[in-house]
Design a protein around this nucleic acid. Structure first.
Lengths: 140, 140
DNA sequence: CTTCATACTAACAAAAATGTACGTACTTAC
DNA sequence: GTAAGTACGTACATTTTTGTTAGTATGAAG
């Protein structure tokens, strides 16, 4: 009889539903966690940023983001499309021609994501500094 | 006159170094990508948020975040500590007592991360709506 | 003396993400 | 005819992440 759950006291099922409706990242079962995963995935962040303000073709995006494989880019774009962040528009022409752009939802997300990315880029020196140097003590 | 590359004109090697110094997420080799991974990792986001504004003990954080295993929490905290976002303070007492808190760097990062998390939580309904329903058409 | 709690680490396993290589369908370039 | 380019899908291999379980040291509680 060990209690595996933290605090089972007074937790009506109704409130749980409410919390999940609005989204509660601290709750293990919240669907928002999946969205977060997509948006903050390795390439998700970069795709959102690459698409900010402009429509781009697949190959275009690929060349813009260093290191993405076609497979991963396609996958990431599908995740984001599924989450309503990206709009995919394919022309039915012989050499495939597909254009990707952000939806209003995607634009909002991209804004937040870019804010974080920008912060990291700008503060990289500070972060690197605070990292423990191997074999070297702190500078006086 | 086929141009395979977008614009290879005038790209001196020196500028590459400059871009890496400041941090350029679009460059495959940029160290900022690692930081991004840590900060946007599954638990990294939640840890930063859980630590915002308060110092917490290991078990405390664990109970706050639904679904984390001890192993992953420890790992995530180490990543963030290594990146200078989290300050770990251990008292040398018998039952281990360790307190975690955000550094100034961590506070700034947490702010950005929370902005994104909040946005997702609040807009979950909109996101869910835009998802293609299986077998169900859009509501009028 | 046995059990429990804390904050982990180590070892092993499973799941998820990512990468590589190849194929496609058709057109343009050569 | 041969080669290249597009936007992927598929199969398979590898890497990374995450989870599970067990163990540690020590004092307090029983």
């Amino acid at each position: 009889m060990k209690r595996l759950v933290p605090a089972p006291s007074a937790t009506p099922a109704a409130s749980l539903t409410d919390r999940l409706a609005r989204g509660d990242l601290m709750a293990a079962a919240c669907p928002s966690r999946e969205v977060l995963r997509h948006v903050t995935s390795r390439w998700g962040v970069l795709v959102l940023i690459a698409l900010e303000g402009r429509t781009r073709r697949f190959g275009d995006i690929r060349r813009a983001i260093g290191g993405v494989s076609e497979r991963m880019l396609a996958q990431t774009l599908q995740w984001l499309e599924h989450d309503g962040m990206v709009d995919r528009r394919a022309r039915d022409v012989v050499p495939p021609h597909v254009e990707y752009s952000l939806t209003p939802l995607g634009r909002e997300a991209a804004e937040k994501v870019r804010a974080l990315a920008d912060w990291i880029e700008i503060n990289l020196p500070r972060i690197a500094e605070s990292r423990p140097r191997a074999g070297r003590g702190v500078a006086t």
